[in-house]
């Protein structure tokens, strides 16, 4: 039997086509991001938006100047919306960092690895016994994140490309990832927790 004859013989064994439902079954197994409860902030946002709209209409009808109040309301609604959206996106940014083999430097010296905690925050261990720094990419977290024992968040640096940089107390922290984390530049918020 020559090569051509063998090839023709082998070609008689066909494989079936993949089941047409295979794609749907893969879709069903696609890991979806856990939904974050947006209930309370969203309700407050909507309520504020309605109030702002009502005030605007009232101001227009009475001719009185309520510009400052309206601007304050609009600013509040904007902050809440950004905060809510960022909270929703934070886990995927955190996962992207986790996959990108981040290296932590404190004042230029190699430091211990990042820790990953709930709420999509990262944790950097401060040198000595000065506690830990929690790191978040959620804008307006300093304004809207409130719960019992809530630490004081403050904007302390930025993330751009593959680098996260911020000031943690007296130390300058730099986290380098092996690929870009986000498009553009975003602020980084830090809270100190004494441990």
């Amino acid at each position: 039997m020559n090569d051509t004859e063998l090839d023709r013989l082998l070609n008689s064994w066909d494989a079936p086509a993949p089941p047409s439902s295979m794609r749907d079954r893969l879709r069903a197994r696609f890991p979806r991001t856990e939904r974050i409860h947006l209930g309370r902030p969203l309700k407050w946002g909507l309520a504020t938006l309605c109030a702002a709209a009502a005030l605007t209409v009232a101001a227009a009808q009475t001719g009185e100047h309520h510009g400052d109040i309206v601007m304050h309301m609009v600013d509040h609604v904007y902050g809440l919306v950004v905060f809510t959206v960022d909270q929703h996106r934070a886990p995927s940014i955190r996962n992207e960092i986790r996959r990108s083999q981040p290296t932590v430097y404190i004042d230029g010296n190699l430091a211990g690895p990042l820790e990953y905690r709930g709420g999509a925050t990262l944790v950097v261990h401060a040198p000595g016994d000065s506690g830990v720094y929690m790191v978040s990419f959620v804008r307006f977290i300093d304004r809207y994140y409130r719960n019992k024992n809530s630490p004081d968040w403050m904007e302390a640096g930025s993330v751009h490309g593959n680098v996260i940089e911020f000031q943690a107390g007296d130390e300058k922290v730099r986290i380098e990832c092996n690929r870009s984390i986000i498009d553009g530049e975003r602020p980084v918020f830090v809270a100190h927790l004494p441990e």
Partner: peptide, 19 residues
């Protein structure tokens, strides 16, 4: 990053020979 469409595009392109 959670885009299901991207995974399905990869699936559509390669799944037949893999199967």
């Amino acid at each position: 990053r959670g885009k299901e469409r991207a995974l399905l595009d990869l699936f559509d392109e390669h799944h037949r020979p893999l199967f």
